[in-house]
Amino acid sequence: MIHRILNHSVDKKGHVHYLIKWRDLPYDQASWESEDVEIQDYDLFKQSYWNHR
């Protein structure tokens, strides 16, 4: 379960990846995930991330 999205990056092919802080895990366990991976409520977290940038 996502706690929040910390950052994003765009690779050379134009694909967006998000650095995800996972609920109940420390920050050093955050991981980069592609924008099209199937994660519960991912779209809501991405929308919230962009609304607050």
Results as ranks from 00 to 15, higher is better:
26 P>S: 11
14 G>S: 03
28 D>Q: 08
42 Y>K: 03
52 H>E: 15
14 G>Q: 04
8 H>P: 02
44 L>C: 09
31 S>V: 05
35 E>N: 09
12 K>R: 10
9 S>L: 11
35 E>I: 03
22 W>S: 02
53 R>H: 11
40 Q>P: 13
6 L>D: 01
52 H>C: 12
12 K>A: 14
25 L>P: 08
30 A>Y: 02
44 L>V: 15
8 H>R: 05
17 H>L: 09
9 S>D: 08
18 Y>R: 00
1 M>G: 13
51 N>H: 10
21 K>A: 14
37 V>T: 14
52 H>G: 14
36 D>M: 08
10 V>Y: 15
44 L>P: 01
34 S>P: 13
1 M>P: 11
47 Q>F: 09
52 H>S: 15
1 M>S: 10
21 K>I: 06
25 L>F: 10
30 A>M: 05
28 D>M: 05
7 N>V: 04
23 R>E: 09
3 H>T: 09
15 H>R: 14
7 N>D: 14
37 V>D: 09
33 E>L: 11
49 Y>N: 02
10 V>Q: 08
6 L>I: 13
49 Y>T: 01
52 H>Y: 10
38 E>R: 08
44 L>T: 13
34 S>K: 15
17 H>F: 09
43 D>V: 07
51 N>C: 07
31 S>M: 00
41 D>C: 02
4 R>E: 14
6 L>P: 05
4 R>Y: 12
37 V>K: 15
21 K>M: 12
4 R>S: 12
25 L>Y: 09
29 Q>V: 06
48 S>M: 14
48 S>R: 15
47 Q>G: 07
5 I>Q: 05
4 R>M: 11
19 L>D: 04
17 H>K: 15
23 R>Y: 11
8 H>Y: 03
3 H>S: 13
37 V>S: 15
27 Y>Q: 15
46 K>A: 01
35 E>S: 12
33 E>C: 15
52 H>Q: 15
31 S>L: 02
25 L>A: 09
12 K>M: 14
24 D>F: 07
49 Y>G: 02
32 W>R: 04
21 K>D: 02
44 L>Q: 12
39 I>H: 08
16 V>T: 13
38 E>S: 11
4 R>F: 06
28 D>P: 05
27 Y>S: 14
37 V>G: 10
28 D>V: 07
1 M>N: 15
22 W>E: 02
9 S>Q: 12
36 D>H: 12
24 D>P: 03
49 Y>L: 04
19 L>Y: 09
25 L>T: 14
36 D>I: 01
12 K>W: 11
20 I>C: 05
50 W>E: 01
31 S>P: 03
16 V>C: 10
23 R>D: 05
1 M>D: 07
39 I>R: 03
24 D>K: 07
1 M>V: 14
22 W>Q: 03
47 Q>K: 15
23 R>V: 12
13 K>N: 12
49 Y>V: 01
33 E>S: 06
9 S>Y: 11
49 Y>P: 05
33 E>Y: 08
20 I>F: 00
30 A>P: 08
33 E>R: 10
18 Y>K: 02
35 E>C: 04
1 M>E: 14
44 L>S: 14
13 K>V: 09
33 E>M: 15
4 R>V: 08
39 I>Q: 03
